[in-house]
Amino acid sequence: MKLWGQAVLRGGIPLVIMSGISVALYAQGEAKDGRGTLFAALVFGVVLAASVIYDVERWTLARQTVVHFAVMIVTVLPLLFVSGWFPTRTAVDCFAIVGTFLLVGLVLWTAAFVVFGVLVPRFQARSTRDRVPH
């Protein structure tokens, strides 16, 4: 399947499920929770859809990271500003949103790098060695 199809599946499935939950919450009179769930669905869907960028094997990790970061800046960051999760009354509020965005992104990128760039290859190499007869 092409990357666009993978992106639609990865992002679309949780987006549809969580949007359904959001609609149900609105229907139950839980507008604030419904709105929060809808924005979580949008953020989660975008992040998962954009994860296909890391499947472009001909790109370096640096290029994948820069492209992914650019996608997050034009999608997730604006969603954080309009989600209602953070105050946006002052410049300090806005800088706090950007700082939170950057910090969470750095932590998640680092965790993913450690898991998928270090641990998984190490376990795969060990598993391959263990299957080879001595």
Score class of each variant (00 low, 15 high):
residue 86 F to P: 01
residue 126 R to W: 15
residue 14 P to T: 00
residue 12 G to K: 00
residue 30 E to F: 03
residue 94 C to L: 13
residue 82 V to N: 07
residue 57 E to F: 05
residue 129 R to T: 12
residue 72 M to C: 13
residue 64 Q to N: 06
residue 12 G to T: 03
residue 79 L to N: 06
residue 5 G to M: 05
residue 55 D to N: 14
residue 37 T to K: 03
residue 3 L to P: 07
residue 127 S to A: 15
residue 125 A to T: 14
residue 14 P to A: 00
residue 95 F to W: 15
residue 92 V to W: 12
residue 87 P to H: 03
residue 127 S to H: 14
residue 25 L to V: 03
residue 128 T to E: 15
residue 26 Y to N: 11
residue 69 F to Q: 04
residue 92 V to H: 10
residue 58 R to C: 11
residue 94 C to E: 15
residue 52 V to F: 11
residue 59 W to I: 05
residue 43 V to M: 09
residue 27 A to L: 01
residue 8 V to R: 00
residue 47 V to N: 03
residue 99 G to V: 02
residue 75 T to Q: 02
residue 132 V to Y: 14
residue 97 I to F: 05
residue 37 T to C: 05
residue 71 V to K: 10
residue 14 P to V: 02
residue 79 L to H: 04
residue 132 V to D: 12
residue 27 A to V: 00
residue 110 T to N: 10
residue 57 E to R: 15
residue 74 V to F: 02
residue 101 F to P: 11
residue 103 L to R: 13
residue 3 L to M: 09
residue 48 L to I: 02
residue 52 V to C: 09
residue 79 L to V: 01
residue 63 R to S: 08
residue 46 V to K: 07
residue 38 L to H: 10
residue 106 L to W: 10
residue 35 R to C: 08
residue 126 R to M: 14
residue 52 V to A: 11
residue 97 I to G: 04
residue 60 T to V: 01
residue 108 L to N: 10
residue 24 A to Q: 12
residue 13 I to V: 01
residue 108 L to H: 06
residue 50 A to T: 11
residue 23 V to T: 10
residue 115 V to R: 11
residue 47 V to Q: 04
